[in-house]
Design a protein around this nucleic acid. Sequence first.
DNA 1: ATTGGTATACTATACAGTGAGTATACACCA
DNA 2: TGGTGTATACTCACTGTATAGTATACCAAT
Lengths: 201, 201
Amino acid sequence: MSTPSPSAKNRILDAANRLFYGEGIRAVSVDAIATRAGLTKKTLYYHFKSKDDLIEAYLASRDQPNLALFRKWFDEAEGDLADKAEAIFVNLAQSARHPKWKGCGFLRTAAELANMPGHPAMKVGADHKKKFEAWLCEVFGEGRTADPDELARHIVLLMDGAFSTVLVHHDPAYIESAGRAAREVVTNALCTPPKSKAPLR
Amino acid sequence: MSTPSPSAKNRILDAANRLFYGEGIRAVSVDAIATRAGLTKKTLYYHFKSKDDLIEAYLASRDQPNLALFRKWFDEAEGDLADKAEAIFVNLAQSARHPKWKGCGFLRTAAELANMPGHPAMKVGADHKKKFEAWLCEVFGEGRTADPDELARHIVLLMDGAFSTVLVHHDPAYIESAGRAAREVVTNALCTPPKSKAPLR
DNA sequence: ATTGGTATACTATACAGTGAGTATACACCA
DNA sequence: TGGTGTATACTCACTGTATAGTATACCAAT
Protein backbone atom coordinates (compact mmCIF):
# COMPACT_ATOMS: atom_id res chain seq x y z
CA MET A 1 0.00 0.00 0.00
CA SER A 2 1.29 3.45 -0.82
CA THR A 3 -1.41 4.87 1.42
CA PRO A 4 -1.06 3.41 4.90
CA SER A 5 -4.66 4.09 5.96
CA PRO A 6 -7.47 3.68 3.47
CA SER A 7 -8.04 7.40 3.67
CA ALA A 8 -6.41 10.62 4.95
CA LYS A 9 -6.20 12.57 1.70
CA ASN A 10 -9.52 11.13 0.61
CA ARG A 11 -11.10 11.89 3.93
CA ILE A 12 -9.92 15.48 3.63
CA LEU A 13 -11.33 15.79 0.12
CA ASP A 14 -14.54 14.26 1.31
CA ALA A 15 -14.87 16.72 4.16
CA ALA A 16 -13.96 19.60 1.83
CA ASN A 17 -16.69 18.52 -0.54
CA ARG A 18 -19.32 18.37 2.12
CA LEU A 19 -18.34 21.63 3.81
CA PHE A 20 -17.29 23.79 0.86
CA TYR A 21 -20.35 22.72 -1.12
CA GLY A 22 -22.71 22.93 1.81
CA GLU A 23 -21.52 26.15 3.44
CA GLY A 24 -19.43 28.01 0.91
CA ILE A 25 -15.72 28.49 0.40
CA ARG A 26 -15.00 31.46 2.61
CA ALA A 27 -17.52 30.40 5.24
CA VAL A 28 -15.55 27.22 5.96
CA SER A 29 -12.25 27.24 7.83
CA VAL A 30 -9.39 24.86 7.34
CA ASP A 31 -9.84 23.86 10.99
CA ALA A 32 -13.43 22.87 10.30
CA ILE A 33 -12.40 20.66 7.41
CA ALA A 34 -9.63 19.01 9.40
CA THR A 35 -12.01 18.35 12.28
CA ARG A 36 -14.67 16.95 9.96
CA ALA A 37 -12.05 14.70 8.36
CA GLY A 38 -11.04 13.48 11.82
CA LEU A 39 -7.45 14.65 11.70
CA THR A 40 -5.43 17.73 12.54
CA LYS A 41 -4.79 20.82 10.54
CA LYS A 42 -1.12 19.95 10.23
CA THR A 43 -1.94 16.68 8.53
CA LEU A 44 -4.20 18.56 6.15
CA TYR A 45 -1.34 20.92 5.35
CA TYR A 46 0.86 17.94 4.74
CA HIS A 47 -1.43 16.82 1.90
CA PHE A 48 -2.43 20.25 0.58
CA LYS A 49 -0.12 23.19 0.50
CA SER A 50 -2.75 25.85 1.19
CA LYS A 51 -6.46 26.47 1.48
CA ASP A 52 -6.46 27.66 -2.13
CA ASP A 53 -4.87 24.40 -3.16
CA LEU A 54 -7.61 22.52 -1.32
CA ILE A 55 -10.31 24.60 -2.99
CA GLU A 56 -8.87 23.71 -6.36
CA ALA A 57 -8.74 20.02 -5.46
CA TYR A 58 -12.32 20.18 -4.23
CA LEU A 59 -13.57 21.48 -7.58
CA ALA A 60 -11.37 19.11 -9.54
CA SER A 61 -12.90 16.19 -7.65
CA ARG A 62 -16.36 17.22 -8.84
CA ASP A 63 -15.45 17.56 -12.51
CA GLN A 64 -15.71 14.03 -13.89
CA PRO A 65 -18.53 12.77 -11.64
CA ASN A 66 -20.69 15.72 -12.61
CA LEU A 67 -20.07 15.31 -16.32
CA ALA A 68 -20.71 11.58 -16.07
CA LEU A 69 -24.03 12.21 -14.39
CA PHE A 70 -25.22 14.55 -17.14
CA ARG A 71 -24.15 12.08 -19.79
CA LYS A 72 -25.96 9.30 -17.98
CA TRP A 73 -29.18 11.27 -17.76
CA PHE A 74 -28.91 12.12 -21.43
CA ASP A 75 -28.04 8.61 -22.60
CA GLU A 76 -30.72 6.88 -20.57
CA ALA A 77 -33.51 9.14 -21.83
CA GLU A 78 -35.87 7.88 -24.52
CA GLY A 79 -36.70 9.92 -27.59
CA ASP A 80 -35.05 12.42 -29.89
CA LEU A 81 -32.40 15.01 -29.05
CA ALA A 82 -34.98 17.41 -27.64
CA ASP A 83 -36.31 14.73 -25.29
CA LYS A 84 -32.82 13.82 -24.19
CA ALA A 85 -31.85 17.43 -23.56
CA GLU A 86 -34.98 18.02 -21.54
CA ALA A 87 -34.28 14.84 -19.57
CA ILE A 88 -31.13 16.40 -18.12
CA PHE A 89 -33.23 19.20 -16.66
CA VAL A 90 -35.94 16.88 -15.38
CA ASN A 91 -33.34 14.83 -13.54
CA LEU A 92 -31.65 17.96 -12.27
CA ALA A 93 -34.95 19.24 -10.89
CA GLN A 94 -35.31 15.97 -9.06
CA SER A 95 -31.83 16.34 -7.53
CA ALA A 96 -32.64 19.91 -6.53
CA ARG A 97 -35.40 18.64 -4.27
CA HIS A 98 -32.86 17.02 -1.98
CA PRO A 99 -32.51 19.21 1.14
CA LYS A 100 -28.73 19.29 0.88
CA TRP A 101 -28.79 20.53 -2.71
CA LYS A 102 -27.15 23.93 -2.97
CA GLY A 103 -26.88 24.56 -6.71
CA CYS A 104 -23.76 24.12 -8.80
CA GLY A 105 -20.52 24.04 -6.82
CA PHE A 106 -18.61 25.44 -9.78
CA LEU A 107 -20.92 28.41 -10.23
CA ARG A 108 -21.09 29.17 -6.54
CA THR A 109 -17.32 29.04 -6.24
CA ALA A 110 -16.97 31.31 -9.27
CA ALA A 111 -19.39 33.75 -7.67
CA GLU A 112 -17.48 33.71 -4.42
CA LEU A 113 -14.05 34.04 -6.02
CA ALA A 114 -15.12 36.60 -8.61
CA ASN A 115 -12.59 39.01 -7.13
CA MET A 116 -9.73 36.57 -7.77
CA PRO A 117 -9.90 35.88 -11.50
CA GLY A 118 -6.49 34.24 -11.47
CA HIS A 119 -7.37 31.75 -8.73
CA PRO A 120 -6.47 28.19 -9.80
CA ALA A 121 -9.96 26.98 -8.86
CA MET A 122 -11.45 29.42 -11.34
CA LYS A 123 -9.63 27.68 -14.17
CA VAL A 124 -10.87 24.29 -13.00
CA GLY A 125 -14.41 25.63 -13.01
CA ALA A 126 -14.08 27.23 -16.43
CA ASP A 127 -12.60 24.03 -17.87
CA HIS A 128 -15.44 21.99 -16.41
CA LYS A 129 -18.07 24.20 -18.00
CA LYS A 130 -16.21 24.16 -21.31
CA LYS A 131 -16.12 20.36 -21.26
CA PHE A 132 -19.84 20.24 -20.72
CA GLU A 133 -20.40 22.67 -23.58
CA ALA A 134 -18.04 20.72 -25.84
CA TRP A 135 -19.88 17.49 -25.09
CA LEU A 136 -23.22 19.10 -25.96
CA CYS A 137 -21.68 20.45 -29.13
CA GLU A 138 -20.64 16.96 -30.04
CA VAL A 139 -24.03 15.33 -29.50
CA PHE A 140 -25.80 18.13 -31.35
CA GLY A 141 -23.29 17.87 -34.16
CA GLU A 142 -24.00 14.17 -34.56
CA GLY A 143 -27.72 14.84 -34.70
CA ARG A 144 -28.42 17.10 -37.64
CA THR A 145 -28.99 20.37 -35.84
CA ALA A 146 -28.66 23.74 -37.51
CA ASP A 147 -25.86 25.34 -35.48
CA PRO A 148 -24.51 22.95 -32.84
CA ASP A 149 -22.15 25.49 -31.26
CA GLU A 150 -24.84 28.07 -30.73
CA LEU A 151 -27.33 25.45 -29.60
CA ALA A 152 -24.89 24.05 -27.07
CA ARG A 153 -24.39 27.54 -25.64
CA HIS A 154 -28.12 28.03 -25.33
CA ILE A 155 -28.41 24.82 -23.33
CA VAL A 156 -25.46 25.80 -21.15
CA LEU A 157 -27.06 29.19 -20.50
CA LEU A 158 -30.38 27.62 -19.59
CA MET A 159 -28.63 25.16 -17.32
CA ASP A 160 -26.60 27.75 -15.46
CA GLY A 161 -29.66 29.95 -15.31
CA ALA A 162 -31.61 27.09 -13.79
CA PHE A 163 -28.91 26.53 -11.16
CA SER A 164 -28.81 30.21 -10.23
CA THR A 165 -32.51 30.92 -10.27
CA VAL A 166 -33.33 27.95 -8.07
CA LEU A 167 -30.65 29.06 -5.64
CA VAL A 168 -32.57 32.30 -5.30
CA HIS A 169 -36.14 31.02 -5.26
CA HIS A 170 -35.75 27.47 -3.94
CA ASP A 171 -38.31 26.34 -6.48
CA PRO A 172 -37.27 23.46 -8.78
CA ALA A 173 -40.14 24.37 -11.09
CA TYR A 174 -37.71 26.84 -12.65
CA ILE A 175 -35.48 23.93 -13.70
CA GLU A 176 -38.43 22.25 -15.35
CA SER A 177 -39.24 25.49 -17.12
CA ALA A 178 -35.63 25.65 -18.30
CA GLY A 179 -36.05 22.08 -19.54
CA ARG A 180 -39.04 23.09 -21.66
CA ALA A 181 -37.05 26.01 -23.05
CA ALA A 182 -34.23 23.60 -23.86
CA ARG A 183 -36.65 21.28 -25.63
CA GLU A 184 -37.92 24.25 -27.61
CA VAL A 185 -34.56 25.49 -28.83
CA VAL A 186 -33.40 21.98 -29.68
CA THR A 187 -36.63 21.31 -31.56
CA ASN A 188 -36.21 24.56 -33.48
CA ALA A 189 -32.68 23.56 -34.42
CA LEU A 190 -33.89 20.13 -35.55
CA CYS A 191 -36.76 21.53 -37.60
CA THR A 192 -35.19 24.54 -39.23
CA PRO A 193 -33.12 22.88 -41.99
CA PRO A 194 -35.97 23.72 -44.45
CA LYS A 195 -35.57 27.40 -43.57
CA SER A 196 -32.41 29.43 -44.07
CA LYS A 197 -30.45 29.67 -40.83
CA ALA A 198 -30.25 33.39 -40.06
CA PRO A 199 -33.43 35.41 -39.50
CA LEU A 200 -33.94 38.52 -41.65
CA ARG A 201 -32.36 41.02 -39.20
CA MET B 1 -30.77 70.13 8.81
CA SER B 2 -31.56 66.69 10.16
CA THR B 3 -28.34 65.33 8.62
CA PRO B 4 -25.43 67.53 9.60
CA SER B 5 -23.06 66.26 6.89
CA PRO B 6 -24.37 65.48 3.42
CA SER B 7 -23.52 61.84 3.90
CA ALA B 8 -22.50 59.34 6.62
CA LYS B 9 -25.15 56.66 6.07
CA ASN B 10 -24.95 57.24 2.33
CA ARG B 11 -21.19 57.08 2.38
CA ILE B 12 -21.41 53.76 4.21
CA LEU B 13 -23.88 52.36 1.69
CA ASP B 14 -21.70 53.60 -1.10
CA ALA B 15 -18.63 51.91 0.31
CA ALA B 16 -20.63 48.74 0.93
CA ASN B 17 -21.76 48.73 -2.67
CA ARG B 18 -18.28 49.12 -4.01
CA LEU B 19 -16.68 46.58 -1.70
CA PHE B 20 -19.42 43.94 -1.38
CA TYR B 21 -20.05 43.98 -5.12
CA GLY B 22 -16.39 44.14 -6.04
CA GLU B 23 -14.94 41.67 -3.56
CA GLY B 24 -17.81 39.59 -2.21
CA ILE B 25 -19.77 39.59 1.01
CA ARG B 26 -17.64 37.41 3.23
CA ALA B 27 -14.39 38.69 1.73
CA VAL B 28 -15.08 42.20 2.99
CA SER B 29 -14.81 43.16 6.65
CA VAL B 30 -16.87 45.75 8.42
CA ASP B 31 -13.60 47.53 9.19
CA ALA B 32 -12.82 47.77 5.50
CA ILE B 33 -16.18 49.35 4.74
CA ALA B 34 -15.86 51.83 7.59
CA THR B 35 -12.38 52.81 6.45
CA ARG B 36 -13.52 53.16 2.85
CA ALA B 37 -16.41 55.33 4.01
CA GLY B 38 -13.98 57.48 5.98
CA LEU B 39 -15.44 56.89 9.41
CA THR B 40 -15.08 54.52 12.33
CA LYS B 41 -16.62 51.14 12.76
CA LYS B 42 -18.59 52.37 15.73
CA THR B 43 -20.26 54.99 13.57
CA LEU B 44 -21.14 52.32 11.06
CA TYR B 45 -22.71 50.29 13.84
CA TYR B 46 -24.65 53.35 14.84
CA HIS B 47 -26.38 53.38 11.44
CA PHE B 48 -26.61 49.62 10.86
CA LYS B 49 -27.21 47.16 13.60
CA SER B 50 -25.03 44.37 12.20
CA LYS B 51 -23.08 43.26 9.17
CA ASP B 52 -26.10 41.24 8.07
CA ASP B 53 -28.21 44.36 8.27
CA LEU B 54 -25.70 46.17 6.08
CA ILE B 55 -25.70 43.34 3.54
CA GLU B 56 -29.46 43.60 3.32
CA ALA B 57 -29.30 47.38 2.86
CA TYR B 58 -26.65 46.93 0.18
CA LEU B 59 -28.88 44.66 -1.88
CA ALA B 60 -31.96 46.79 -1.27
CA SER B 61 -30.08 49.79 -2.65
CA ARG B 62 -29.49 47.95 -5.92
CA ASP B 63 -33.09 46.84 -6.45
CA GLN B 64 -34.79 49.83 -8.08
CA PRO B 65 -31.78 51.15 -10.05
CA ASN B 66 -31.26 47.72 -11.61
CA LEU B 67 -34.89 47.28 -12.58
CA ALA B 68 -35.00 50.80 -13.99
CA LEU B 69 -31.99 50.07 -16.15
CA PHE B 70 -33.54 46.96 -17.67
CA ARG B 71 -36.78 48.81 -18.36
CA LYS B 72 -34.83 51.63 -19.99
CA TRP B 73 -32.94 49.27 -22.27
CA PHE B 74 -36.19 47.59 -23.21
CA ASP B 75 -38.16 50.79 -23.77
CA GLU B 76 -35.50 52.50 -25.82
CA ALA B 77 -35.04 49.57 -28.21
CA GLU B 78 -36.65 49.71 -31.64
CA GLY B 79 -38.68 46.86 -33.05
CA ASP B 80 -41.04 44.16 -31.81
CA LEU B 81 -41.00 42.32 -28.49
CA ALA B 82 -38.26 39.98 -29.64
CA ASP B 83 -36.03 42.91 -30.60
CA LYS B 84 -36.70 44.64 -27.32
CA ALA B 85 -35.97 41.50 -25.30
CA GLU B 86 -32.73 40.94 -27.15
CA ALA B 87 -31.79 44.58 -26.58
CA ILE B 88 -31.59 43.97 -22.84
CA PHE B 89 -28.95 41.33 -23.44
CA VAL B 90 -27.02 43.43 -25.94
CA ASN B 91 -26.83 46.27 -23.45
CA LEU B 92 -25.92 43.89 -20.67
CA ALA B 93 -23.07 42.48 -22.75
CA GLN B 94 -21.81 46.02 -23.20
CA SER B 95 -21.89 46.60 -19.42
CA ALA B 96 -20.09 43.32 -18.86
CA ARG B 97 -17.10 44.65 -20.76
CA HIS B 98 -16.39 47.19 -18.03
CA PRO B 99 -13.42 45.95 -15.98
CA LYS B 100 -15.26 46.41 -12.69
CA TRP B 101 -18.23 44.32 -13.80
CA LYS B 102 -18.62 41.25 -11.59
CA GLY B 103 -21.95 39.76 -12.62
CA CYS B 104 -25.21 40.18 -10.78
CA GLY B 105 -24.85 41.28 -7.17
CA PHE B 106 -28.07 39.50 -6.24
CA LEU B 107 -27.00 36.17 -7.71
CA ARG B 108 -23.54 36.37 -6.25
CA THR B 109 -24.91 37.16 -2.83
CA ALA B 110 -27.39 34.30 -3.11
CA ALA B 111 -24.54 31.97 -4.03
CA GLU B 112 -22.46 33.14 -1.11
CA LEU B 113 -25.30 32.96 1.42
CA ALA B 114 -26.75 29.70 0.11
CA ASN B 115 -26.13 28.17 3.53
CA MET B 116 -28.30 30.81 5.22
CA PRO B 117 -31.65 30.53 3.45
CA GLY B 118 -33.35 32.65 6.10
CA HIS B 119 -30.93 35.56 5.75
CA PRO B 120 -32.84 38.84 5.25
CA ALA B 121 -30.72 39.67 2.22
CA MET B 122 -31.90 36.48 0.53
CA LYS B 123 -35.45 37.73 0.64
CA VAL B 124 -34.43 41.06 -0.87
CA GLY B 125 -32.71 39.19 -3.69
CA ALA B 126 -35.63 36.87 -4.30
CA ASP B 127 -38.06 39.80 -4.35
CA HIS B 128 -35.89 41.65 -6.82
CA LYS B 129 -35.82 38.71 -9.21
CA LYS B 130 -39.56 38.22 -8.82
CA LYS B 131 -40.17 41.87 -9.68
CA PHE B 132 -38.12 41.50 -12.84
CA GLU B 133 -40.03 38.37 -13.79
CA ALA B 134 -43.37 40.06 -13.05
CA TRP B 135 -42.45 43.02 -15.24
CA LEU B 136 -41.52 40.71 -18.12
CA CYS B 137 -44.79 38.88 -17.62
CA GLU B 138 -46.62 42.15 -17.93
CA VAL B 139 -44.93 43.29 -21.14
CA PHE B 140 -45.36 39.85 -22.72
CA GLY B 141 -49.00 39.80 -21.63
CA GLU B 142 -49.65 43.12 -23.35
CA GLY B 143 -48.08 41.85 -26.54
CA ARG B 144 -50.03 38.81 -27.67
CA THR B 145 -47.64 36.05 -26.71
CA ALA B 146 -48.72 32.46 -26.21
CA ASP B 147 -47.84 31.91 -22.54
CA PRO B 148 -46.47 35.09 -20.93
CA ASP B 149 -45.65 33.46 -17.59
CA GLU B 150 -43.62 30.68 -19.13
CA LEU B 151 -41.97 33.06 -21.57
CA ALA B 152 -40.99 35.44 -18.77
CA ARG B 153 -39.38 32.56 -16.92
CA HIS B 154 -37.41 31.54 -19.98
CA ILE B 155 -36.04 35.08 -20.29
CA VAL B 156 -35.21 35.16 -16.58
CA LEU B 157 -33.40 31.85 -16.91
CA LEU B 158 -31.41 33.03 -19.91
CA MET B 159 -30.55 36.24 -18.12
CA ASP B 160 -29.33 34.56 -14.93
CA GLY B 161 -27.54 32.00 -17.06
CA ALA B 162 -25.82 34.81 -18.91
CA PHE B 163 -24.73 36.44 -15.65
CA SER B 164 -23.36 33.18 -14.28
CA THR B 165 -21.68 31.91 -17.42
CA VAL B 166 -19.86 35.16 -18.04
CA LEU B 167 -18.67 35.14 -14.45
CA VAL B 168 -17.02 31.82 -15.22
CA HIS B 169 -15.65 32.48 -18.70
CA HIS B 170 -15.22 36.27 -18.74
CA ASP B 171 -16.57 36.28 -22.28
CA PRO B 172 -19.53 38.61 -22.92
CA ALA B 173 -20.21 36.71 -26.16
CA TYR B 174 -22.24 34.35 -23.98
CA ILE B 175 -24.59 37.20 -23.12
CA GLU B 176 -25.08 37.92 -26.81
CA SER B 177 -25.77 34.23 -27.38
CA ALA B 178 -28.34 34.38 -24.59
CA GLY B 179 -29.84 37.40 -26.33
CA ARG B 180 -30.27 35.42 -29.54
CA ALA B 181 -31.89 32.59 -27.57
CA ALA B 182 -34.21 35.15 -25.98
CA ARG B 183 -35.12 36.52 -29.38
CA GLU B 184 -35.85 32.98 -30.52
CA VAL B 185 -38.19 32.03 -27.69
CA VAL B 186 -40.01 35.36 -27.88
CA THR B 187 -40.41 34.98 -31.63
CA ASN B 188 -41.76 31.47 -31.17
CA ALA B 189 -44.26 32.75 -28.64
CA LEU B 190 -45.34 35.53 -30.99
CA CYS B 191 -45.73 33.17 -33.93
CA THR B 192 -47.31 30.12 -32.32
CA PRO B 193 -50.95 31.26 -31.85
CA PRO B 194 -51.90 29.15 -34.92
CA LYS B 195 -50.67 26.02 -33.10
CA SER B 196 -52.22 24.61 -29.92
CA LYS B 197 -50.16 25.53 -26.87
CA ALA B 198 -49.08 22.24 -25.35
CA PRO B 199 -46.92 19.78 -27.34
CA LEU B 200 -48.11 16.18 -27.58
CA ARG B 201 -46.05 14.86 -24.62
C1' DA C 1 18.28 5.30 10.31
C1' DT C 2 15.61 7.54 7.32
C1' DT C 3 11.28 8.50 5.28
C1' DG C 4 6.12 9.25 5.30
C1' DG C 5 2.50 10.47 7.95
C1' DT C 6 0.62 12.19 12.02
C1' DA C 7 -0.07 15.14 16.47
C1' DT C 8 0.42 19.01 20.06
C1' DA C 9 1.02 23.47 20.62
C1' DC C 10 1.94 27.69 18.83
C1' DT C 11 2.15 32.60 16.08
C1' DA C 12 0.38 36.59 14.16
C1' DT C 13 -3.23 38.64 12.24
C1' DA C 14 -8.06 39.70 11.35
C1' DC C 15 -12.62 39.52 12.62
C1' DA C 16 -17.51 41.17 14.45
C1' DG C 17 -19.08 43.63 17.82
C1' DT C 18 -18.81 46.83 22.37
C1' DG C 19 -17.81 50.15 26.46
C1' DA C 20 -17.40 54.54 27.52
C1' DG C 21 -17.22 58.89 26.25
C1' DT C 22 -17.46 63.60 23.27
C1' DA C 23 -19.33 67.40 20.35
C1' DT C 24 -23.26 69.51 18.50
C1' DA C 25 -27.88 71.02 18.15
C1' DC C 26 -32.25 71.64 19.11
C1' DA C 27 -36.51 71.88 22.42
C1' DC C 28 -38.66 73.32 26.33
C1' DC C 29 -39.12 76.05 30.35
C1' DA C 30 -38.02 79.96 33.71
C1' DT D 1 -32.28 85.49 27.56
C1' DG D 2 -30.36 81.98 29.59
C1' DG D 3 -30.24 77.33 31.29
C1' DT D 4 -31.12 72.48 31.26
C1' DG D 5 -32.42 67.95 29.20
C1' DT D 6 -32.24 64.91 25.45
C1' DA D 7 -31.30 62.99 20.84
C1' DT D 8 -28.07 62.72 17.11
C1' DA D 9 -23.80 61.67 15.24
C1' DC D 10 -19.59 60.56 15.98
C1' DT D 11 -14.53 58.67 17.95
C1' DC D 12 -10.86 55.80 20.50
C1' DA D 13 -9.62 51.90 22.48
C1' DC D 14 -10.84 47.54 23.50
C1' DT D 15 -12.64 42.20 24.00
C1' DG D 16 -12.91 37.64 22.83
C1' DT D 17 -12.71 34.65 19.27
C1' DA D 18 -11.36 32.65 14.78
C1' DT D 19 -8.29 32.54 11.14
C1' DA D 20 -4.39 30.62 7.89
C1' DG D 21 -0.39 28.76 8.47
C1' DT D 22 4.00 26.82 11.22
C1' DA D 23 7.82 24.82 14.57
C1' DT D 24 8.87 20.89 16.56
C1' DA D 25 8.46 16.42 17.66
C1' DC D 26 6.75 11.62 17.65
C1' DC D 27 6.11 6.99 15.68
C1' DA D 28 5.78 3.16 12.65
C1' DA D 29 7.63 0.80 8.73
C1' DT D 30 10.76 0.01 5.35
